[in-house]
Design a protein around this nucleic acid. Structure first.
Lengths: 154, 154
DNA sequence: TACTGATAGTCAGCATACTGAGCAATATCG
DNA sequence: CGATATTGCTCAGTATGCTGACTATCAGTA
């Protein structure tokens, strides 16, 4: 009988579970109410002003049906805006607000600190190696999930 | 601006996303309707007949509030039974059914095959190293999530 | 231009996961 | 023994994530 600790699937879930808990604890302690998904979306909107929801989803590998709710909550918190696109009436253009910019600026060092805490059991070399192997495994499996990572095309 | 690919948290989410998708695809193709959580719970019940829900949760690092619903669905599918404990009237004793045993027997090779697919971008040595590093990071962060792994005490 | 297919977004439904609260039962200790 | 704390489980509420379906719009083409 194979042990859970020999199952990459189990280890993946467990590591992610800890990563989310660390993120929420650090961000919450700093006085913010933002989930990992919301942070990733907000940072990506800031880096790509005016992008539409499908492009955003592709850049951070979320399902487009999940993005709808995430944007709803960012808008409701006053951190982002969703407006109709002039070029394509189906699409929504996303913008970060000043409040969103302020939040992002204050929260980014906290998020980076959280990343270090997730790896606190590993030394620097091991942390790098873990990320390298994860990147490699993810690249090979990218198309296997419904929400693969998509580059922006020029 | 730190790239997503330098964030262990992002990589963790992405790898887990792929792992779940692979699991569901393989299990579904084999004709079964069982989620990763349900599989882990069922296998653990079989290995520890009569255990209660809190012990089960600790063995596979789930929150006890999540386990309630998971067991509901296993019972509803006829794969497990939940009965009142005689020793402690608060607790429920969990048992696998014959149907659950049959399902588990047929599904286990499929699950193991899914584990290999998740790592298909890595060679054997890299796969082992990834699992070693994940185990190490998880051990150091075990207490940081609300649902830490708990060994059974004698 | 009319038809066909693809695309952007939303929605309903289901299954994790979590927080926090509550109830019932058990354990502990003065 | 009785008050208190703890434990096992459930529930309400919220937020991912997914499948599948639907509407509106756009793009390509006969």
């Amino acid at each position: 009988m194979k042990d859970n600790n020999d199952m990459p699937g189990h280890l993946a879930r467990r590591f992610q579970q800890i990563a989310v808990a660390v993120f929420l604890a650090e961000v919450g302690d700093a006085g913010f109410d933002l989930t990992p998904v919301q942070y990733a979306a907000l940072a990506t909107i800031k880096a790509n002003p005016g992008l539409d929801q499908v492009t955003l989803a592709g850049l951070i590998a979320y399902d487009r049906t999940t993005i709808t709710g995430v944007i709803d909550r960012l808008v409701q918190k006053g951190l982002a805006e969703r407006r109709a696109s002039s070029r394509d009436r189906r699409a929504r253009e996303l913008e970060i607000t000043d409040e969103g910019r302020r939040t992002l600026r204050k929260i980014t060092p906290v998020v980076e600190s959280a990343q270090r805490i997730m790896l606190r059991g590993l030394n620097a070399r091991e942390g790098e190696e873990l990320m390298r192997l994860l990147r490699k495994a993810i690249a090979a499996g990218n198309e296997l999930s419904r929400a693969p990572l998509r580059d922006v095309q020029a």
